[in-house]
Simulated assay, not measured.
Amino acid sequence: MPIVTIQQSPRSIELKRELVEKITNAFTEVYQLPPEAIQIFFAETSHENWAKGGVLASDRE
């Protein structure tokens, strides 16, 4: 059973619903698994707790 972990800054519930549907569909199509076999976890981190290129994401906004 595949487990997908997505690390990101916070997103709306609507966007997450759309993403999990598309990821699940991709796994069911390619791996020929039932949707119930796919697990997806979101690990959301606020912008003040991650950086890119030496700059906090909160400072980029």
Rank of each mutant, 00 (worst) to 15 (best):
M1E: 08
P2Y: 07
P2M: 07
P2H: 08
P2N: 05
I3C: 10
I3E: 05
I3N: 12
V4G: 03
V4C: 07
T5P: 00
T5D: 09
I6E: 01
I6F: 03
I6T: 04
I6H: 04
I6D: 02
Q8G: 09
S9M: 11
S9N: 13
S9G: 15
R11S: 14
R11Y: 10
S12D: 14
S12T: 15
S12F: 05
I13L: 13
E14A: 15
L15P: 00
L15E: 14
K16D: 03
K16R: 15
R17F: 02
E18S: 15
E18L: 12
E18V: 07
L19I: 13
L19Y: 03
V20A: 04
V20R: 01
E21H: 13
K22V: 09
K22Q: 14
K22P: 01
I23R: 04
I23W: 06
I23L: 15
T24V: 06
T24Q: 06
T24W: 02
N25T: 13
N25E: 14
N25K: 14
N25Y: 01
A26K: 04
A26C: 12
F27W: 09
F27S: 01
E29I: 05
V30T: 15
Y31L: 15
Q32Y: 02
Q32S: 14
L33W: 01
L33M: 08
P34N: 12
P35L: 07
P35Y: 01
P35M: 05
E36H: 09
A37N: 09
I38A: 02
I38P: 02
I40R: 01
I40S: 02
F41T: 11
F41S: 06
F42H: 00
F42R: 01
F42I: 06
A43Y: 10
A43D: 11
E44L: 11
E44G: 10
E44W: 11
E44T: 08
T45K: 12
S46F: 03
S46M: 10
S46E: 15
S46N: 13
S46Y: 06
H47F: 08
H47E: 15
H47Y: 10
H47T: 13
H47Q: 14
E48H: 13
N49T: 06
N49H: 15
N49G: 07
W50C: 09
W50H: 12
W50E: 07
W50P: 01
A51P: 08
A51L: 11
K52F: 09
K52W: 09
K52H: 12
K52Y: 11
K52C: 10
G53N: 09
V55R: 08
L56W: 12
L56G: 05
A57T: 03
S58I: 14
S58N: 11
R60L: 13
R60S: 06
R60N: 05
E61H: 04
